[in-house]
């Protein structure tokens, strides 16, 4: 019965008052318009970024470094990957470990505290994390603008994402698997590392990819921790600033020069394309697993 109604809603009896029909139709029209507005905005943003970005793309962007208000983006592309790699290097082991803890020991009080605080930490504005990085690492730690300060700030942003996605991934693992492993005499450690983690690995990797997308798209936490540099990274973890793509978007769009604006559009193209590709990939991986 329930299924029948869902598939073919009962035809409205003729006697429904005209006013009610008008209100209902208008309601759907308004709701549909809301969705349409959202879709149009999305298309508009994509249009601006990809059409103008594509016009600004050329090979020299990937082969030369920034010179004043022109040149290429090689330094920024390298910097974005160095900073994100650093952030993941720090946040993946910590995030996965805490995700394991709040999933596998989910009934302990400490786990619920961490779960709650992870959600709160997601909501802390990224500029607050950035200013904390500035105060604690750049100033107090004396590292100046540097890869280390930038990566640690980004890692704080990624950490709760990875923790929560790891938890959700592990929760998808059937309890039968755990029971079977325990009944064979395996310890907590064997069960988690040998059974649950491999089963949840694709979903955990998806979470890590999404965290990578977040870190590539962040600007505010890096402005006063990583600084900016027109040159390639010199390999030092501290005391040397580094460029990154989102800074190029923010700074070069404000310049009055066409060459600078082109750099901003190109950077926006690269960042947005990267972030969207990761999100679409993650969606397909999750979707394929969900259907299985």
């Amino acid at each position: 019965m329930a299924i029948a109604i869902q598939q073919a809603p009962a035809p409205l009896p003729r006697r429904i008052r005209l006013s009610r029909r008008i209100v209902s139709t208008a309601g759907w029209a308004v709701a549909g318009t809301c969705l349409l507005v959202l879709s149009v905005m999305m298309v508009w943003i994509l249009e601006v970024v990809f059409v103008r970005g594509a016009r600004a793309l050329n090979l020299s962007l990937f082969t030369t470094i920034t010179q004043g208000t022109g040149g290429g983006l090689l330094n920024a592309i390298e910097g974005t990957f160095v900073l994100s790699a650093g952030a993941l290097l720090l946040s993946v082991p910590l995030g996965v470990a805490s995700g394991i803890y709040i999933s596998e020991y989910r009934f302990s009080r400490w786990a619920s505290v961490i779960r709650f605080l992870a959600d709160v930490l997601v909501g802390v504005p990224s500029i607050v994390v950035g200013y904390f990085g500035y105060v604690a690492l750049v100033e107090w730690g004396g590292w100046n603008f540097s890869v280390a300060a930038g990566s640690i700030s980004l890692a704080i942003i990624c950490l709760p994402y990875i923790c929560r996605t790891t938890e959700l991934a592990l929760r998808q693992v059937s309890n039968d698997l755990r029971d079977a492993a325990y009944s064979l005499g395996a310890t907590d450690r064997r069960v988690i590392l040998g059974v649950c983690l491999p089963a949840a690995l694709p979903a955990i990797l998806t979470g890590v990819l999404l965290a990578l997308a977040v870190s590539v798209g962040e600007t505010a936490p890096l402005l006063y921790t990583a600084g900016w540099s027109n040159y390639m990274w010199d390999g030092h973890l501290t005391h040397s600033p580094i460029g990154y793509l989102t800074y190029a978007i923010w700074t070069f769009i404000n310049e009055p020069f066409a060459s600078a604006n082109a750099l901003a559009y190109a950077a926006a193209f690269l960042v947005t394309a990267f972030v969207l590709v990761i999100n679409i990939m993650a969606r397909f991986v999750l979707d394929r697993r969900a259907r299985r």
Partner: peptide
């Protein structure tokens, strides 16, 4: 997907 777009790109737009 709007959620995934970086805020600096919203700013650019």
């Amino acid at each position: 997907l709007l959620m995934a777009i970086p805020s600096v790109v919203f700013g650019l737009w």
